[in-house]
Design a protein around this nucleic acid. Structure first.
Lengths: 336, 336
DNA sequence: AATGTTTTCGGCAACGTTTGCGTAAATTAA
DNA sequence: TTAATTTACGCAAACGTTGCCGAAAACATT
């Protein structure tokens, strides 16, 4: 159907051998200037492009990397993807993006699929459901380069790129406290996720340092990170029906923040006099809200770039890398 | 580095020929039941996965399709991508997503790259800058299956999947009129885009039918579809400084709508008593705004699905397809 | 003129897979 | 028992590319 010319075609047309054509195109020293020009001109003319599948087969690498995120509609991830692409493309790599929609099942199939597609490496942020990472451990042990970002597992020893979630959460919670709120609740994604744990740490630290006690009832988890709106709605409603009703909520995620606001809107309580909100979000629409929402902004683009650089380092390493670090990037509080 | 077992390995281990193994795995009738079981069990055991590159090389197809959109951060596109993935994955295809960020230059390189990556087909929504589609025409003439969606070119004869932009624009404009606004401006993306033309048609029709005259000064274009915020800011400010100052704006795009609101917010005019807004958008955060924004919702997911079905129809066609249609899906006005 | 060196190119194998063809062995038919 | 047929498998080529090895031609050295 869609045929493009091959090195063989060129060889036939020019009455040369395929090896000569191959070398001429790669500007090898053992080909005369005349032949080189002949070949290159002709290749240009017929718009020759090397077949990447043949290359991959031969070189045993595909020059592609797989990305696994929750969903591209999340501004944090879309910005991270932009960062990933900027590095990957400039280094000649194609990226294949897959979405888990926070389902561990889809994470497994995506990872399986990417691996069997023979990507050279994987860039992953775990799904909210993911507790058991054995599917990734296997691949990692078999030598597939993997770099985790944002939501990282404890167990697997490789590069990890994360934001300073504790610090970000601390600042956001502290901001709410400084703004005069005293009873601050916390809604977070799945409790076992690294980001949830770290953000919870920041939250509790802020309360502590301000001499506020922590009410366990004020801490809610949504196991599907906001993908299931019912979970968010239940969490918010439970908070609101508490005897010790909170006057503010620190929400630990982009999608969760939106979900939370939808619930409050529905309850006609989207108003800081009713209940205030601060969240983790990379969306710039937050300041269009009335009232605008203070949020912790993560350097998503930079994180994507850094993670990709680390991954390419692994992929292109001459010798197996055994020493890995954990890069922690600073967040920034947008006070609105 | 990351080696997986091949048919050869299995053959060697089982003392069989590669052809026997291959046939056994494909459950060929010319292999005895015993051998089949032997092979399949062993393949299972070593977690054999066929090498996709070898397959692609042999079958001359990659079982992958390329997607070209402006940016995944746009809710219309992210939803369309979900639709595309749902069909593509269920049919065994991998999707490679690329973003133009509304630049025709990036569109060219992306398309080039995808073509040389030997995708089996392309799913494209043109960038705002794209006027000349010769880079796509070339590939299309050489036989690469292409389906356009959302922003489609006039010239290239293939399947096209679009929303009823004129109708959507008509309804949104009409809604503003029915809400009592009399002087309705229009901010749109690049003027040559199909969506811009169609939405302009709906806008003018609504004004006409309501006996309102059309002021050319009320119609503004942003050649980069909102990617360059300065363009949006200039457009809005020009509208506001007009003698015949509009009392409402119909904004023809997701990103443009957000951009527009940011400008108004900055000018402290984000208020329907100052100026009202209705837009094209698939984002669900619009009703979190105060005041909420009425918007035209496109069936993005369905459009993605339909476009993919059409593309796979082209890819898997036995004979060249010459008859193409233009699928038009209905929009829905969310009155907020 | 004979030998040694370059220069320039072709042949072949290999990457992992499928498939048409060939063919021993096993089975059936005569 | 012999011939015809079926069963079950192996061989080799092909997809597009590169790299090793070999070799003809051109040139340089005695």
């Amino acid at each position: 159907m869609f045929e493009s010319s091959t090195i063989k075609d060129i060889a036939r047309a020019l009455n040369l051998s395929t090896s000569t054509v191959s070398r001429a195109l790669r500007d090898s020293y053992e080909i005369s200037a005349g032949t080189k020009k002949l070949v290159m001109d002709y290749a240009q003319q017929v718009n020759y492009r090397p077949n990447p599948n043949a290359l991959s087969l031969k070189e045993r690498r595909s020059k592609s990397i797989g990305i696994v995120v929750s969903e591209v509609a999340n501004h944090y991830f879309s910005q991270a993807i932009n960062g990933i692409e900027s590095i990957a493309n400039s280094r000649g790599y194609t990226v294949i993006i897959t979405q888990t929609h926070e389902s561990v099942e889809r994470e497994r199939t995506n990872v399986q699929h990417l691996a069997s597609r023979s990507v050279d490496g994987l860039l992953i942020s775990l799904s909210a459901e993911t507790n058991d990472v054995s599917h990734l451990e296997q691949l990692h042990e078999r030598g597939l380069p993997i770099v985790f970002f944002d939501r990282v597992p404890e167990r697997i020893n490789t590069y990890k790129v994360i934001a300073d979630n504790a610090q970000g959460a601390y600042e956001a919670t502290n901001h709410l406290i400084q703004s005069g709120f005293k009873k601050i609740a916390h809604i977070s994604s799945s409790g076992h996720l690294s980001i949830s744990i770290e953000r919870l740490t920041g939250y509790t630290q802020a309360l502590h340092e301000n001499g506020l006690s922590i009410n366990p009832e004020h801490i809610k988890n949504c196991p599907h990170g906001g993908m299931i709106q019912d979970e968010v709605e239940t969490a918010v409603k439970e908070l609101l029906s508490l005897q010790d009703k909170p006057d503010a909520i620190f929400v630990a995620g982009d999608r969760l923040t939106m979900g939370c606001m939808h619930v409050l809107k529905k309850l006609n309580m989207l108003n800081p006099t009713m209940i205030a909100i601060a969240g983790f979000s990379n969306s710039d629409v937050l300041d269009l809200f009335n009232p605008p929402i203070t949020s912790v902004f993560q350097p998503a683009f930079d994180m994507g770039q850094l993670a990709t650089e680390k991954l390419l380092e692994l992929i292109e390493a001459k010798f197996p890398v055994t020493e890995f670090d954990r890069e922690i990037l600073h967040t920034r509080l947008y006070i609105r």
